[in-house]
Amino acid sequence: MKQLKNEAEIKAVIEKIPQDRAFLSVSEAGMLFGIAKRTLYRLVGQGKVPSVNLGTRLVRIDRSVMEGMFGPERSLPQAESIPKKKLYSLEKEDCYSIGEIAQRFQISEGSVYSHIRKYSIPTRQIGKHVYAPKTEIDNLYNGNDFI
């Protein structure tokens, strides 16, 4: 979610920059070409990127030079749809208890709990027992993803 928010902010700023503007600020150039501001300032300081200093905090970089050095402006990937959450049946008959998992796959209950946390497998507690979906547990241990 944070990445999508950052990309949306960058896209909004990029859209505000006119296409015919010949000189860009360091932050604008960084956003357009996907380069950190600090890196651009370092390259300007080393003389590798020609620039014009119009005053305090007014360093401008020629857009055509940037395109020549770093290629065309980057286009942000289209916002990917948020992955759909899997729906599980957490009914008792569709789940294994932690003890059943430990016995069936011959591992300790502590290992089962750590794998459930590590792989974000949903659980449900009914009375004293904790249950996890059979499909996820079978995929985890039969596929040997946990090693």
Rank of each mutant, 00 (worst) to 15 (best):
4 L>T: 05
5 K>S: 10
5 K>L: 09
7 E>K: 04
8 A>N: 05
8 A>P: 02
11 K>A: 11
11 K>R: 13
11 K>D: 06
12 A>H: 08
12 A>C: 04
13 V>F: 12
13 V>A: 13
14 I>K: 13
14 I>Q: 14
14 I>C: 14
15 E>F: 14
15 E>M: 15
17 I>T: 10
18 P>F: 12
21 R>E: 15
23 F>R: 08
23 F>M: 12
24 L>A: 09
25 S>I: 01
26 V>G: 04
27 S>K: 11
29 A>T: 15
32 L>C: 15
32 L>R: 11
33 F>M: 09
33 F>E: 09
35 I>A: 08
36 A>S: 14
38 R>W: 01
39 T>I: 01
41 Y>I: 06
41 Y>L: 15
41 Y>M: 15
42 R>K: 13
46 Q>W: 04
50 P>N: 10
54 L>C: 08
55 G>A: 12
59 V>H: 00
60 R>S: 03
62 D>M: 07
63 R>I: 06
65 V>L: 00
65 V>Y: 03
66 M>S: 09
67 E>S: 14
68 G>W: 01
69 M>L: 15
70 F>S: 08
70 F>N: 10
71 G>K: 06
71 G>R: 05
72 P>Y: 00
73 E>A: 14
73 E>G: 03
73 E>W: 02
75 S>Y: 01
76 L>S: 02
76 L>C: 02
78 Q>W: 00
79 A>D: 03
81 S>I: 12
82 I>A: 07
83 P>K: 11
83 P>L: 08
85 K>P: 11
87 L>E: 13
88 Y>M: 02
89 S>A: 06
89 S>N: 05
90 L>V: 02
91 E>N: 04
95 C>Y: 01
95 C>Q: 06
95 C>S: 11
96 Y>S: 05
97 S>W: 00
97 S>G: 10
97 S>C: 06
98 I>W: 00
102 A>E: 04
103 Q>I: 02
103 Q>C: 07
104 R>F: 09
107 I>W: 05
107 I>P: 02
108 S>K: 04
108 S>T: 14
109 E>W: 00
110 G>D: 12
110 G>S: 13
112 V>P: 02
112 V>D: 03
112 V>L: 03
114 S>T: 14
115 H>S: 11
115 H>C: 14
118 K>F: 12
118 K>A: 15
118 K>R: 15
120 S>Y: 00
121 I>A: 10
121 I>W: 03
122 P>E: 07
123 T>A: 07
124 R>M: 09
125 Q>V: 15
125 Q>T: 13
129 H>R: 13
130 V>L: 10
131 Y>W: 09
131 Y>N: 09
131 Y>T: 07
133 P>I: 08
133 P>F: 05
136 E>I: 05
136 E>A: 15
138 D>R: 01
140 L>E: 02
140 L>D: 08
141 Y>A: 10
142 N>R: 12
142 N>M: 08
143 G>Y: 01
145 D>Y: 09
146 F>Y: 15
146 F>V: 10
147 I>D: 13
147 I>K: 13
147 I>V: 14
